[in-house]
């Protein structure tokens, strides 16, 4: 027979993902809604709760999780593969550590092959939670994710949206795809939901999008996060999670608590 039926890298990627108790992919379909921020914050909150947590940054064109977490350094390789970089108590793997500030244009099939190889070679050790920051788009990245997570016990997707009608429309397509492919959706997170001004709560992008999606797809809204200047300041501070405002941290903490209840580690 030919070897076309065997894809060693995708197979190994699935095997290595399955070593984590729980795999949670954070996805939106749309760019700029705050997936990487939510991924990094959730990882920090889980680590603060004493969980062994890793983050796989699949955003190969714009890897930002290392920047958010203030992680710098060089990846090491050993017999077991590539060791993730440890940032605080978080294990982090990102091509950002390998390409510096260089751009990475890619074409037909390359992205799928790159993320398969990255996931296949990363040696996480034992994790309770592996969070995957999924890049925008419903092309190769999502196709890879569907193949990697299909039938994987303890795996689910958290979908991020904003109240904007444009985000809602893109997220609806993503939710349809996930439903059609029978992927477990843990819930919806509404980011950039509101801000406070002079004691008033202002919703600049309107409201109701998360509820409409929640009703339509029968998935819960797990958190609403404000627009908050403390987020940018926290990223620059070098002590990201601790520097977030109380309001943001409380929302993230509530989100992590819901995820832990819905999808507890240690199966």
């Amino acid at each position: 027979m030919s070897g076309a039926d065997v894809d060693p890298m995708l197979h190994e990627a699935r095997a290595r993902l399955s070593r984590a108790d729980k795999v949670i992919a954070i996805s939106a379909g749309k760019g700029g809604v705050g997936k990487s921020f939510i991924t990094a914050s959730m990882a920090a909150a889980l680590a603060e709760r004493g969980r062994r947590v890793g983050v796989l940054d699949l955003d190969v064109h714009g890897p930002t999780v290392p920047k958010i977490l203030g992680a710098r350094g060089e990846i090491t390789a050993w017999k077991g593969g590539l060791r993730p970089l440890r940032s605080g108590n978080i294990e982090l793997m990102s091509v950002g550590f390998m390409i510096g500030e260089e751009p990475l244009p890619s074409a037909g099939g390359e992205k799928m092959s790159l993320i398969s190889t990255l996931a296949a070679l990363t040696d996480w050790g034992h994790l309770e939670y592996l969070l995957i920051d999924v890049p925008p788009g419903t092309g190769e990245e999502i196709t890879w994710l569907l193949r990697a997570l299909r039938g994987l016990e303890g795996a689910g997707v958290l979908v991020v949206t904003t109240p904007s009608l444009l985000a809602e429309s893109v997220v609806r397509r993503l939710l349809k795809l996930l439903r059609d492919e029978r992927v477990d959706v843990l819930g919806i997170v509404e980011n950039l939901s509101y801000f406070r001004c002079g004691g008033k709560l202002i919703r600049p992008f309107g409201e109701g999008a998360a509820e409409r999606l929640s009703r339509e797809f029968a998935v819960p809204v797990l958190a609403r996060l404000p627009i908050d200047p403390s987020i940018e300041e926290a990223i620059l501070s070098g002590n990201f999670y601790r520097s977030l405002s109380e309001e943001v941290r409380s929302a993230i903490s509530g989100l992590v608590e819901s995820v832990e209840t819905l999808n507890p580690a240690g199966r």
Binding site: L82, M98, I99, E102, S113, L114, T117, L121
Partner: peptide, 13 residues
């Protein structure tokens, strides 16, 4: 070089 591990990084490197 990272290229040795991840050849699909060629266009960045």
């Amino acid at each position: 070089s990272p290229l040795h591990f991840l050849p699909d990084l060629a266009r960045a490197l």
